[in-house]
Design a protein around this nucleic acid. Structure first.
Lengths: 363, 363
DNA sequence: ACTACATGAGAAAACCTTTTCTCACTTGAC
DNA sequence: GTCAAGTGAGAAAAGGTTTTCTCATGTAGT
C-alpha cells in the first residue's frame, strides 16, 4: 500500500516536469493523472470511468469523483485509435449558398450531438479536385461516415464515394446503386399544395416553375397535372424572381380567362410573381392565391403577402441521415434504397381561404 | 441480429470484429503493410515517406512508390496523438441563417485546406448548454484551435472561451480582453457608400438602418453623419424589408424636399425601400440613388434594380482568421487586438452615376 | 486443513505513427 | 592495420486509451 502510494506520487511529478520544460502548452490531464490521484492503476481508472470491469463500488466512485475534480477529459484521438471510432462524420456539399445544406446540417448536428459526434463541413464547389482533397482529408481523420448533400437531387457530386470503406449516406442528392438516400417527396409536396388550392375553391391553377431538366421539377409538375388536370399550362423557366415576374406577364397577356391561383416551383419565383401581380393591380390572395416551394424563410416570410409554401423538412431529413450514418458506422444493418420524406404545407397569407393556425416559423 | 443490435446500443465502443461480420469496414492499410511490401522496417518506411532521416535515395523512392501503389494513407489519429496536432479546428457560430457564417466558413476552409486542416462546424443557437457540449466535444477531439463567429459584433457567444488551452480567434463577433478579433471596418464601408453618393452628385442623402443598439449601426451612422452632415435624419428601425418600406413612407410623407439618395443599413431594408419607391412612382436610380449593405447576393442581386451595396469581405475575413488560428496553433506569435478589414463597394444599377466595371459577383 | 472459486486490482499488449537512439558496415586517412 | 567519420537502416519508446490476461487475497465448502 505504502509502496503504491509512493509510486503514484513519483510518476506524475516526473511527467509534469518534462512536459513543462519541453513545451509551451500546459500538459493535458490524462488518465495517468487520474490514476495517480486516486492511487489506483491506469487500468482500474479506465474501467472505473467506463463502468466496465470488476471492482469495488467504492473504488469506482472515488475514481469518478477525482476525475471530475481534476477536470479529466479523455483524449478522443487515443480512444479513436483503439476503438476505430472517431465520433466524427463528414458532410460534403456543393450547395454554395447553403440554402439546402444549412437546414440539413442543423438536423444532422442536432441528432448526433447527443452521441458525441462532431461534423466536418466540407463545401466543394463543383471542383472534383477540391472534393477529392476534402474526402481524403476526412478519411485520413478516420471519419465514421460521410453524408453527401447538394443542391439538386439529380446531380451527382463531382467525386465517387461508392467504394469507400466508411459508410456513405446521401441526403437531398442522388446516391449510387446500393446506397441509402434520403430525399423529400416532391410529388407529395406538390400534391399538398395543389389540393389545398382546390380545397379553397380555386379552379384555374397555373404552375410556374424551374428548368424542366430538373427531376424535382418534373415530379412536381406531374403531381400538379394529376390534381389540377391540364386546363392551365406549366411554365418552365429558371429559379429566379425575374422569371416569376415574367411568367405572370405572359399569363396575363394571354387572351381569355386568367388563372385564379399560381403554384410556383420555388419561393423566389413566387415572390417575383407576387410583385408582378401587385403591379398589375391583381390582389393576392383575394383575386389570386399563391403558393411557393421551399419555405426559404428569408424569401417566403418577407414576400407581401407572406407566402404559403411547401416545406421540405430538410432538418428532419438531416436528422434521419445523421442517425442512419451512425447506425451504419456501428454496424447496425440498414436497408439500402431511397427514402422519401413527406413535405409539409406552411400556410401564410398568400392563399386566402381559411387561415390555418399553422403559421410556420421553423429554423 | 437482435442481439447485435442490443449490443451495439449498449456498447458503441466495441471492437471492429463484430462490424466486419455485417459487411462493415475492411482493415485499413497501415505503415506496417508498406514496410512489409517494401521489405524495410517501419521506421525506415516512416522516414522515407516523410522525407526525414538518412537513407539511400533509391530506398526512399521505392518506399514512396510502393506506398502509393498499395494506397497507403497515414492515420491522422495516430499521428495526432504523437504530434499533439490534430489538423482540425472548430468553428463556433450562433448565426442560424448562416448568412454571415457561410462566407466566413468558406474563407477559413479555403485558407486551411491547403494545410490539411478540416473544420468542425458547430451551430449553437443561443443555448449556453449546447455551446458547452460542442466546445467540450471539440476539445476532446483535440482541435488545434477554435474560431468563434456570430451574427453580431457586440454580442458575446453564450460560452466562455477565454481560458481554453487552445488558441481562439474571433471573427465578426466580440472577443475577450487579450484575444485576436477580426471584424469588418463598418465605418470605412459606410464612408465608401456615402462618398460614392456624394461623388455622383447626390446631396440629400438619408440613412435608413437597423436598431440603434447595434454597435455596427452606430458606427455606420457616425460615418454617414461625418460625410453627409446632418441635413437628413437617420431612421433607426429593424433589419427587415418592411421597415425599409415603412421608412420610405415616412420620409416621403414629410413636407418639403425629398431625399435624392438612400443609404440603407442592410440589403433587406434597401430592398423594402426599393419596393416602396417603385410603388410611389419614384424612379431608381434616376430620381433616387439607393445603396445597401452586406452584399447578400440573394437579396441584392434580385432587387429591382439590382443593388449597389457594401461588401464586408467576409470570405477574406474568414481566410485571415483561419491563417491566424493556424499560426497560433503552431506557436507563432500573433499580436492580440482587433483587426479591421476594409469593405468594398459593389456597384450595381441602383445608384446611377457612371457605372463601374465592377459588377460584383462573389461567392 | 485443503481445495475451489469469487473478487478486486494491476501488468501488459494493442491501436498507428514519429523520433531518437543504436548498431553494423564502409570509406578514407594516417 | 587501426581509427575516425560517415552512411544506411533497424529497435524501441512515446503518445493516451481500452481490454485481456494474470495474480493475490479472501471466502466458502468438504
Amino acid at each position: 500500500m505504502t509502496q503504491r502510494l509512493v509510486k503514484a506520487f513519483l510518476k506524475p511529478l516526473q511527467k509534469e516536469d518534462s512536459l513543462n520544460i519541453s513545451g509551451g502548452k500546459r500538459g493535458r490531464i490524462t488518465i495517468h493523472e487520474v490514476a495517480a490521484a486516486a492511487a489506483v492503476s491506469i487500468s482500474t481508472a479506465s474501467k472505473a470511468l467506463n463502468d466496465t470491469g470488476r471492482m469495488g463500488a467504492e473504488t469506482r466512485e472515488r475514481v469518478k469523483r477525482i476525475a471530475g475534480e481534476i477536470g479529466y477529459r479523455p483524449n478522443a484521438l487515443a480512444r479513436g485509435l483503439l476503438s476505430k471510432r472517431s465520433f466524427t462524420i463528414g458532410l460534403l456539399t456543393n450547395d454554395t449558398y447553403g440554402r439546402f445544406t444549412l437546414p440539413v446540417m442543423a438536423g444532422i448536428s442536432d441528432a448526433l450531438v447527443d452521441h458525441g459526434v462532431s461534423v466536418f463541413l466540407c463545401a466543394i464547389e463543383d471542383d472534383p479536385a477540391l472534393a477529392q482533397i476534402h474526402v481524403d482529408a476526412m478519411l485520413d481523420k478516420q471519419v465514421d461516415g460521410i453524408i453527401a448533400t447538394g443542391k439538386r437531387l439529380d446531380r451527382r457530386l463531382p467525386v465517387d464515394l461508392s467504394n469507400l470503406h466508411v459508410p456513405v449516406v446521401y441526403a437531398f442528392t442522388e446516391g449510387t446503386q446500393n446506397s441509402v438516400t434520403f430525399r423529400s417527396d416532391d410529388e407529395q409536396g406538390a400534391r399538398l399544395a395543389v389540393e389545398w388550392l382546390a380545397k379553397i375553391g380555386r379552379r384555374r391553377i397555373a404552375h410556374i416553375t424551374g428548368p424542366e431538366d430538373f427531376f424535382s421539377v418534373r415530379e412536381r409538375a406531374g403531381a400538379y397535372h394529376e390534381v389540377a388536370g391540364h386546363r392551365e399550362p406549366v411554365l418552365y423557366g429558371v429559379w429566379s424572381e425575374s422569371w416569376g415576374h415574367e411568367a405572370v406577364e405572359k399569363l396575363w397577356k394571354r387572351p381569355g380567362e386568367k388563372p385564379d391561383a399560381l403554384f410556383c416551383g420555388n419561393d423566389q419565383i413566387a415572390r417575383g410573381a407576387a410583385d408582378a401581380l401587385r403591379e398589375r393591380g391583381v390582389k393576392v390572395p383575394q383575386d389570386v392565391s399563391l403558393i411557393g416551394f421551399d419555405n426559404w424563410e428569408i424569401v417566403a416570410a418577407q414576400t407581401r403577402p407572406p407566402l404559403t409554401t411547401v416545406d421540405m423538412e430538410l432538418k428532419e431529413l438531416g436528422r434521419q441521415a445523421g442517425l442512419t450514418v451512425l447506425a451504419l458506422a456501428e454496424g447496425r444493418p440498414v436497408e439500402p434504397g431511397v427514402r422519401k420524406l413527406p413535405c409539409r404545407l406552411i400556410v401564410r397569407q398568400s392563399c386566402g381561404g381559411r387561415t390555418s393556425d399553422d403559421q410556420g416559423n421553423e429554423i
